[in-house]
Structure formats: C-alpha cells, structure tokens
Design a protein around this nucleic acid. Structure first.
Length: 596
RNA sequence: GGUCUCGUAGUUCAACGGAUAGAAUAGAAGUUUCCUAAACUUUUGAUUCGGGUUCGAUUCCCGACGAGACUACCA
C-alpha cells in the first residue's frame, strides 16, 4: 500500500510540477493515531521541485490524488508538511483478499539459486553447561536464520564446538584425580552438568593450592608458575596434542557426556543446526594457513618461535597467531574453521553470532582472512550482541552467579504453571495438556523477553522478578493467538465459514481498516528485519498486532454479529491475524498454543 | 591511556532525520448476564549535559559526564 501511494505521488508530482522524481524520495508512513487518515506523505522533500509552501504543496498533491486516483485515495487532509491520506475502503478489502489468498504471506520462497548465508551461533565450550548468555546467543542465531530464510535466502546454520584446549583438560584432570570413576549415569546428572562440576572442582583445588603457595611467601606470579595442578593440566594438553590414546579416550568419553547434555538443552530450547564443526578438526587447518602466511611474508615469526600478525597499518596492534610452543590460539582456529567452511559450502554471506566482547577479535579475523587471500574475509559479519548481566553485576562462573540455562527454563515453566493454576485455567485441561501449555508459555515468554530487546544493548536479567507474563510479553501474544483460535473453532462449530475472498464493496469500520493496514505491513517488516538483522523488530511488530487485535476483539462480538458480511469480514480478519502472528512468532522460534 | 558499544518515564523496552517522543510495568480510578479478565478503558510520569549540521535531531557530528566490553602465549 505504501508503495502504491508513493507511485501515485510520483505521478502527481510529474503532472503538477513537471518534475521526474524517484519513488525513494517519497516518504510514506502510517499516520499517527491523533491525526485523521491511514498513510502520511511527508512533503518536505518535495518542496525543492514544487517551489511552494509545504501546506500548499500538500493540498495540491491531495487534490490531484483524490481527483485522478479516486480508486486509491478517498480523501486527505494537510497538517503542516504532512499529507494525510484516507485510503479507499475497497482498497483495504482487496489487501485483505490478497493476504487471505497467500499461504505464507510475506515470506519469499527460497530458490535453488538464492544466495547462501551461513550463520554460526551457540559455539559452546565443552567444559561447562550452557547459561543465560548462551540462551541469548542461541535464540538470536536461530531467529536470524529464520528471518534470512523468510527473505528467500538459503541458510546453513552451524555450530563450532570448542571441544579442545586447556579448559577441557582441567575437567579431565579433576575427573581423573577425584572422580572415582563416576559417570553421569551413576550420579544421575546431566552430562554437561556433571563435567562442569569437575571443572569447578579443579578451580576449587587450584585456588587452595595457590593460597598455600602464597602462604609460603611466593608472589602471585611465582605461585602460578609453581602450581603442580596447572603443570599437570598442561602436560595433559601436550599429551592430547601428541595423540596419546588414553588421554584421547578420556577426552572423547567426557565430551560425549557433554554433547548428550547439550543435545537435551538445545532440544528443550527448540533450536538445532544443519552442520556442526569441531575445533579439534579445524585447528590444524588454521595452523597450516598461518604457516602459509608466514611463508608468504604476511606474518612474522619471532626468535622464540611464536608467530605474529602486525596490524598497525590497520590501526590495530600486534596479534599472536601461534604460541612459542607451536600450539594454536583462538584466532588460529577461527581461520581454519573459516577455510573449511568455505571449502564445504559456496557461502555468499557469513554471519557470526558472537557476543560484543569479541568485537575486536572479529575485526582482526576479517583483516587476517582478507590478507590470506580469502575473498569472504572483508564481507564477514559479526552479529554482535550485548552481555546479559545480573542485578549484582556480571555473571561469573567461578562465583557461581551464573544463571544456568536448564534451571532457567525449569523456572520459567514452573512460573507459567503456577500462574495458570492461580487463574483457574487448568481445570479445563488434562494434566498433559496443562503441562504442555506451561512449557510453551514459559519458554515463549523467555524467548520473547530476550529477543524483543535490541541486540546491541546489554540486558540486566533479574531472576528473582523472573519474567513477566503480562504486557509486552510472549505470553500476551500467545494468549491472543489462543483466543483467536478459539473464536475460529467456535465459528466452525456454528457453521460459519471463512471465505476465500470478500466482495470489494464490503463495508469497513476504522478499527478493521487499522487491523488490515497493520497486517499488510508484514512483508515490509520481514524484509526490513532481514536487512537490519533484527529479531527485535519482528517481536515488537507481533506485539503491536496482538495488542491491536485485543482491542478489536474487545469491541466486537464476532460470533454474535448477525450481519453476514460483517461477520465474515471479522472472521477473516481474525483468521489472518492468527496466520500472521503465527508467521511472526515462527521467525522468533516461539511456539503457539491452540488453547491456554 | 587507546578502540568499540550503550545513556529515553520509578523500572523494562520502542521510535528509516519527521508531526504533540510511543508501549509495558509499577502507582491511581473503572469495566464480567456477552466468543478465554493472562483482557479492556481512563490517568500520573522521560530523551544525562553543552555545542554544531537543517525546514526539522532521541537519531547525524564534536566535547563533557556516566555504564559496559576489549586492549592475554584464555576461549
């Protein structure tokens, strides 16, 4: 609709002022509530060609549109430099017919030639369970993938698992020393939790060791160097890299436990991947690339054997790529992973969903890949998002102030169950139904809470206050959806049908026009969300749609409406609102209950 | 110190450079013979400060102040 108006205005400008302008000059936006009209044209940008005052220009354009395009424009008014347009009712009916006729309104079908976007997200370490920060990451990544797909892109969702390194060795060593052969099965624990506990155990003993050493009068640095635990860990890493079979077997077994745990958490969270990469497979590739860089004179090997990239020409500093002992660092691995990925897929766009603490890392990665001659280096996108903090400050795994992903999901579902129970809703449902609804609502609220916030911002998450189930929340949207489904069920029972299309002379009330207008903007919204990589945009749109429908619902007795054409209109509006809420929420990875 | 991100009602979030800065919560007052009251209606309340760019700035630029991140032979 906005586009139609823009085209019509271009035509009017040509007829009135004889000037050729592009539609991109025309700003068409929804009219603010306090003014009369549906859409508003901002005339300020047109003053240059009209050579007249804003009000006069607006009136001339309005007159032209009402006279020459009356099938589109039914009326107008001008306030200052704003031309408010009343769109003809028959237009809105046609728009609604258009929405009704499309299975997935607003989604662009994915063709085999479409650009291929790879999205990396999650990227866990295998030494501890997933926490709230990972939840934000996973939700953003999953949602972005859905949004890109809705924009007609081919999408490969990928996960790079940091399955090797000193941190894993800490868990392994602790298990060897103090595990007494325990397994997740024997302890009745989730595998990731089980291994994470050993990681914490290592740290506890390490702290103790450090305190003892410092008590002997050693400085902090000396104490670190004298640590036997650390020495054993490093030795373990060395053995791992050397391919020691016993160590490799232990490593494999403990990682399997962790993967089983992750799998469960991912499944509950409702996210998955198309392709998983393991750092243990990619880090050697990274080393090769770095060595190539050295031989091509791109990087410098120092006297101690370490390899560095000098990025001072780019305004950055020196960056380590290989340690003196030849082992790789994070950057080395990311170079290797990138190479393997581009060998595996014809990637047009690479998106890394990683926290903003790594902004610098990706800036450097982009430059390094570019230096190494990879065409994709410059175009890689770091989808950076803010930290999730607690009211007391930053989450610290060592201080035990981390909000565990599984615990949080449990808590959300529990809260949903309690609220549902208190409202007396559960009487209508079987135990299984009630439990399923609690699950959908609890998780939906959590997801919505995270996704509606602009990714750049840090989130302060208050576990005590938990998450609201009222207002701008996932459950509000779910409730609205369930209610619409209920209306449609009842309509069917009573023999009322939703037609394929409405006659164009169907009368419309302003509430109905407003709802159609909002529905009609969905394709633009999806496109914009794709261009701006913004799940938050989708979330806030779906909320405003749900809110609009709630008011509509409150004002009209849909099923008791006796006028046939009015009732079918309202049913059709309900049907399509549900359809688009469903589409929108699917972009966020949020499931909807049929009843609640 | 340097680089980057963020500063909006008491609180949590919105606002392609557009009109009188929107919602939600919390506070105050209402609405159930009626399709689901997890709803709806009314009401109180905010752009950190100072410059600049222009028809117009929460948005863009400069400076100050405040919060966070990075600046590791950690990942």
């Amino acid at each position: 609709m906005e586009k139609k108006i823009a085209v019509a205005v271009v035509e009017a400008v040509k007829a009135l002022y004889g000037a050729e302008i592009g539609t991109e000059v025309i700003q068409v936006q929804p009219t603010k509530r306090e003014f009369e009209g549906h859409l508003t044209v901002v005339v300020f940008p047109l003053l240059e060609v009209s050579k007249r005052k804003p009000e006069e220009t607006g009136r001339s354009l309005g007159d032209y549109l009402v006279t020459h395009r009356k099938e589109l424009v039914a009326g107008f008014n001008v306030v200052k430099g704003f031309l408010n347009i009343q769109v003809a009712a028959s237009c809105w009916v046609e728009v609604l017919n258009g929405i009704q006729s499309e299975e997935r309104f607003g989604f662009i079908p994915v063709s085999a030639e479409a650009p291929l976007v790879m999205i990396e997200y999650s990227s866990p370490n295998t030494n501890k369970p997933l926490h709230l920060g990972h939840i934000r990451n996973n939700l953003l990544g999953y949602s972005l993938a859905e949004i890109m797909r809705a924009n007609g892109k081919r999408v490969v969702r990928t996960n790079i698992v940091n399955d090797r390194g000193i941190h894993i060795c800490k868990s392994m060593l602790a298990w060897q020393k103090w595990g007494n052969g325990a397994t997740p099965m024997s302890m009745g624990l989730k595998g990731d939790r089980f291994v994470g506990d050993f990681y914490v155990l290592f740290d506890t003993y390490y702290e103790e060791e450090q305190l003892n050493l410092k008590a002997e009068g050693l400085t902090e640095k000396e104490a670190e160097q004298r640590s036997t635990l650390m020495a054993e860990t490093r030795e373990m890493l060395r053995l791992w890299e050397a391919g020691d079979t016993a160590i490799r077997r232990l490593w494999k077994e403990m990682n399997e436990w962790v993967y089983a745990g992750f799998e469960e958490t991912y499944r509950r969270l409702g996210i998955d991947f198309d392709r998983i990469y393991y750092e243990s497979d990619t880090y050697t590739e990274g080393k090769k690339e770095v060595e190539r860089g050295v031989s091509e004179g791109l990087f410098e090997r120092r006297a101690d054997g370490s390899v560095w990239a000098d990025l001072s020409a780019e305004g950055l500093d020196q960056k380590l790529l290989l340690r003196a002992d030849g082992t790789s660092v994070y950057m080395t691995q990311d170079i290797g992973t990138a190479k393997l990925r581009f060998d595996d897929y014809p990637i047009d766009k690479m998106i890394y969903v990683v926290g903003n603490e790594q902004d610098y890392h990706f800036q450097v990665l982009s430059i390094l890949l570019d230096k190494l001659g990879f065409a994709f280096g410059k175009g890689l996108m770091h989808f950076s998002y803010g930290m999730v903090d607690l009211p007391e400050g930053k989450m610290k795994s060592r201080k035990g102030t981390v909000v565990d992903a599984d615990d949080l999901m449990d808590e959300m579902i529990r809260t949903a169950r309690v609220i549902s129970h208190d409202l007396g809703k559960q009487e209508d449902f079987s135990t299984e139904e009630a439990e399923e609804i609690a699950r959908l609502v609890g998780l939906g609220s959590l997801k919505y809470f995270i996704l509606k916030i602009d990714p750049h911002r840090n989130i302060t998450f208050n576990p005590k206050k938990s998450i609201d189930f009222n207002g701008n929340t996932g459950s509000f949207i779910q409730y609205t959806y369930a209610r619409i489904r209920s209306v449609l069920r009842k309509a069917k029972e009573q023999g009322f049908t939703v037609p394929d299309r409405l006659p164009s002379d169907t009368p419309l009330a302003s509430k109905e026009e407003a709802l159609i207008q909002l529905l009609a903007t969905f394709p633009l919204l999806v496109q914009e969300a794709g261009e701006r990589y913004s799940p938050a945009l989708v979330a806030n749109y779906v909320y405003s749609l749900a809110k609009e429908y709630n008011q509509f619902y409150h004002d009209y007795a849909i099923l008791r409406e006796t006028n046939l054409s009015v009732r079918t209109l309202r049913l059709m509006l309900s049907y399509n609102t549900a359809k688009i809420i469903h589409s929108g929420m699917s972009l966020l990875g949020i499931a909807l209950p049929e009843r609640m």
